[in-house]
Design a protein around this nucleic acid. Structure first.
Lengths: 191, 191
DNA sequence: TAGTTTTCTTACCATAGGGTTATTTTTTTG
DNA sequence: CAAAAAAATAACCCTATGGTAAGAAAACTA
C-alpha cells in the first residue's frame, strides 16, 4: 500500500484526508494463482491495482474460446472497465495468473474521489490518456503486424511474463491459436 | 459552432468566460474531400471536432499499405492522439473523406482549459472513459469475430458511411484486404 | 518419486484471407 | 456527354493460420 501511495504522491499533492479516504475504500489482498476476482455475468463492484504479480482479463465467446484483453503486471489497474464505465454486468473475467498482491478498491466509492478530492481529476485524466494511447497502439499493431511481429513485440514489452504464463494465454492475447504460437516460437528459436 | 456549444452545455454549466475561451482557441472550417489535416511525420498542433461529414485517421506501413484507426463522423473528435498525449511527431494521417465541417482547436491551448476551467475535467474524464470502452470493444471484436462478423457490425454501427467511403478504407479498418471485403459483400448479398 | 494433470509440440489437412492481375462498373472531370 | 480516373469485382493461385488429434515434456500433487 505504501508503494501505491508513494506513486500517487509522485504526481500530486496528497492531503492526509485524501490518503485516509483511499485507505477507507480499499483493502490489500494476496491472491493465489487461479483465483477469479471478477466473473463474467456478475456485477462489477471492484477495481484492482496490482502491487505485485500478474492478472489477466478475458472474455469467453459462444464456442468457449477465451480472448485475453489485458495482462496486468505491477502498477497496472485491472477490472472490467466496459462494465464499470457503462454500469453493465461483467462481460470479462479477471483471473490471477500467479500469486499476486493487489489493492482492491470499491469501484463506486473510488468514483466519488473526484467530487471529494478534485486534485484526482487531472491525475486520472492523464492515466486515461495513456490508456487510450496504448489501446490505439495495440489496434494499429493488430492491423499492420504479422503474428510473428506481434509476438516479438509482446516478448519485448512483457519480458518475463512468459515464465509464468501459459502460452495459450499469450496466444489468446495476440489473436492466434496456441499451435500457431508454438510454430512461431520454433521459427524464432532458429534465428 | 452553436451545436458544439450546446452539446457541452448539456453536460456542464458553461460560463461565458469558458465559452469565450473555446471560441478564442478554435476556428470553424469547411474541408473538402481529400484534404489532409494532419500529416504523418509532422508536429500535431490541432485537434478536430467534426460538426458534419466524415474524416479518418490512418497509418501507412513500410510497404505503403494504409491501416485505418478511426472514422470520425458527426460529434466525434479526431486527431493523432498518440502524438498529442505523448508529445511526439504524428504517426497518423488525418484525411477528409467527404466534404465536412469541423471545428479546429489548437491542441495545446485546449489542454490549458482544465487549469483555467476545472469544470472541464470531469467532462473530459468521462469522454476518455467512453473512448476506452469503445477501444476495448474493438479489440475484443478483432480477437473473437470473423471478418464477416466484423463487417456486419461495422455496417450496423456506421450505417450510411458506405455510401461515401471507398470499400478499401473500410477493409483497412477491419484488418482485411479490399478483395476480401468484396468477397464478403458478395456472400452477404446472397443471404 | 510415481502418478496425474497441464502444457507444449508436432503433424496432418482445411480454410480464411492475401497478392497479383484483369475486367467491369462507377464516379469524376473537362 | 465523352473521356479519364477511381473503385469494385472476379479469378487465379498462394500462404498464414486454424482445427483436430496424438505424443512429448513439464509441472503439480499425493
Amino acid at each position: 500500500m505504501e508503494h501505491f501511495i508513494n506513486k500517487i504522491k509522485s504526481s500530486l499533492d496528497l492531503t492526509s484526508e485524501a490518503e485516509e479516504f483511499l485507505y477507507s475504500i480499499s483493502k490489500e489482498k494476496t491472491i493465489s494463482k487461479g483465483e477469479v476476482l471478477i466473473r463474467q455475468g456478475q456485477t462489477v463492484k471492484k477495481t484492482y491495482f496490482v502491487s505485485d504479480g500478474c492478472l489477466r482479463s478475458f472474455c469467453t465467446d459462444k464456442s468457449g474460446k477465451e480472448h485475453t484483453l489485458q495482462f496486468a503486471i505491477k502498477d497496472w489497474w485491472i477490472s472490467d472497465f466496459i462494465a464499470i464505465y457503462n454500469n453493465e454486468l461483467a462481460k470479462l473475467t479477471v483471473e490471477c495468473i500467479k500469486e499476486s498482491k493487489v489493492i482492491e478498491f470499491n469501484a463506486s466509492k473510488l468514483n466519488n474521489i473526484y467530487a471529494q478530492f478534485p486534485e484526482f481529476e487531472a491525475f486520472q485524466r492523464k492515466n486515461l490518456e495513456q490508456h487510450v494511447v496504448s489501446l490505439h497502439k495495440r489496434i494499429l499493431n493488430q492491423l499492420q503486424l504479422t503474428a510473428r511481429e506481434r509476438y516479438d513485440l509482446f516478448v519485448e514489452q512483457y519480458k518475463d511474463i512468459e515464465q509464468y504464463t501459459p502460452n495459450y494465454h499469450i496466444a489468446s492475447y495476440l489473436g492466434i491459436t496456441q499451435q500457431s504460437l508454438s510454430r512461431i516460437r520454433v521459427e524464432r528459436a532458429k534465428n
